[in-house]
C-alpha cells in the first residue's frame, strides 16, 4: 500500500507541474492568436480609439509577462478573475457549466461503460460468431460517423416524432427524471461514439488471455465458459480496460462541444469555444485548466486502479 501512496503523492505533484506548464502554454497560445479581446469584442465596429480604450480599461496594454504573473498570482489564491466579455466572476460562469458537463458525461458513461463491458465480454465469449461480428460492425459504424451526423440521425428518428426533445434545455432546478429525459439524446449520441473503443478493448484484452495455460486449466477442470471469462480472464484484463475507460471519460468531459452545439446543451465546451472566439483569456485559462485536471486525475485514477487490481504490482519484490 505504501507504494500506492508514494505514487499518488508523486503523481499529484507532477500533475500540478503539468497544470502550471499548461497555463503558460495556453496563455502563450492565446497571445499568438491574431487579434485580442478588444478587437474581437468590437468586431466590425472596432475603431482605434475604442480598441485602445478597452485595452486600457482591462489592462490588456501591459506586456505579456506582467499579465501572466498577475493572473498566476490571483489564480494561486483561488481567484480566477472576471470574464472580460461580461464582467462576471469566472468561477460563477464555470460552476454551473462544469456541473452540466459532468452530469452529461456521467449520464453517458453510466450507459456506455456497462454496455460496452457487457458487449465486450459477450463478444469474446462468442468470438467470430454472427453476434460478435454484428456487434463489432455496429460499434465501428457508429464510431466512424462524425458526432454531429449521429446526432442528426437520432434527431430525425427520435426527436421529430416527438419522443424526445431535440434541444436539451437544462437547468439545475429541474427534477432528475426531467433532466434525464431532456438530455437523453445527447447522452445516447455520446454513448454511440464511445462504446466501440471500450467494447473492442475489452474483447481484445480477454481474447488475448484466453490462450494462456491457466485459462486452459480452468476449462479442463470443467468450468463453464462464461465463468472462465469473468472469474479468470477478466481480472487479468482489467488494467487495459480501465485505461481505455479513463481515456473515454476524459473525452466525455473535454471533447463534446459538437454534441453540445447540436443539442444546444450548456456545457463547458461551448463556453470554451465562445471564449476563445472572443479572446476572453481568463475564461479560456480556467476551462483549459479544468480540462487538463480532468485528464491528469482520470489517468491517475486509472493507474491506481490498475495497480490495485494487479497483485504483481502491489507486492513487488
Amino acid at each position: 500500500m505504501a507504494n500506492i501512496w508514494r505514487m499518488l503523492a508523486q503523481r499529484l505533484g507532477l500533475g500540478l507541474v503539468t497544470l502550471f506548464v499548461i497555463s503558460l502554454l495556453i496563455f502563450g497560445a492565446a497571445e499568438l492568436l491574431p487579434g485580442d479581446f478588444a478587437q474581437a469584442v468590437l468586431g466590425q465596429s472596432a475603431t482605434e480609439e475604442t480598441v485602445a480604450a478597452i485595452r486600457a480599461e482591462y489592462g490588456l496594454d501591459r506586456p505579456f509577462h506582467t499579465r501572466y504573473v498577475d493572473w498566476l498570482g490571483s489564480a494561486l489564491q483561488g481567484d480566477f478573475g472576471q470574464s472580460l466579455a461580461n464582467r462576471k466572476p469566472v468561477a460563477d460562469m464555470i460552476g454551473d457549466r462544469l456541473a452540466n458537463t459532468l452530469f452529461l458525461a456521467l449520464y453517458a458513461a453510466a450507459i456506455a461503460v456497462p454496455l460496452s463491458l457487457m458487449l465486450g465480454i459477450l463478444a469474446a465469449l462468442f468470438r467470430n460468431s454472427i453476434f460478435d461480428r454484428s456487434v463489432n460492425a455496429l460499434a465501428l459504424t457508429s464510431i466512424s460517423f462524425p458526432e454531429f451526423f449521429v446526432a442528426y440521425i437520432l434527431i430525425l428518428w427520435l426527436a421529430q416524432s416527438g419522443l424526445f426533445p431535440s434541444i436539451s434545455r437544462f437547468s439545475v432546478d429541474l427534477p432528475l427524471g426531467q433532466k434525464l429525459y431532456n438530455t437523453f439524446l445527447p447522452a445516447l449520441t455520446l454513448t454511440l461514439v464511445v462504446t466501440a473503443h471500450m467494447m473492442r478493448m475489452t474483447r481484445a484484452a480477454i481474447i488475448n488471455l484466453l490462450a494462456s495455460p491457466y485459462i486452459e486449466m480452468a476449462r479442463l477442470k470443467g468450468m463453464p465458459p462464461f465463468r472462465v471469462i469473468t472469474r479468470h480472464a477478466l481480472p487479468n484484463a482489467l488494467a487495459p480496460i480501465i485505461n481505455v475507460i479513463a481515456l473515454n471519460l476524459a473525452y466525455l468531459i473535454t471533447g463534446v462541444v459538437v454534441v453540445e452545439v447540436v443539442f444546444v446543451y450548456p456545457g463547458l465546451g461551448q463556453l470554451m469555444v465562445d471564449s476563445v472566439a472572443k479572446r476572453d483569456i481568463p475564461v479560456v485559462q480556467a476551462v483549459a485548466l479544468i480540462f487538463a485536471a480532468a485528464y491528469v486525475l482520470l489517468n491517475l485514477t486509472a493507474d491506481v486502479l490498475s495497480t490495485l487490481t494487479n497483485p504483481r504490482l502491489m507486492h513487488r519484490r
Binding site: V41, L42, A85, N86, R87, M93, Q270, D274, S275, A277
Partner: peptide, 13 residues
C-alpha cells in the same frame, strides 16, 4: 448568441 454576450450596450454586436 454566445456565452460571452454581455449586458453592456456598447458591446451588442
Amino acid at each position: 448568441g454566445s456565452t460571452s454576450d454581455s449586458l453592456d450596450p456598447g458591446s451588442w454586436d
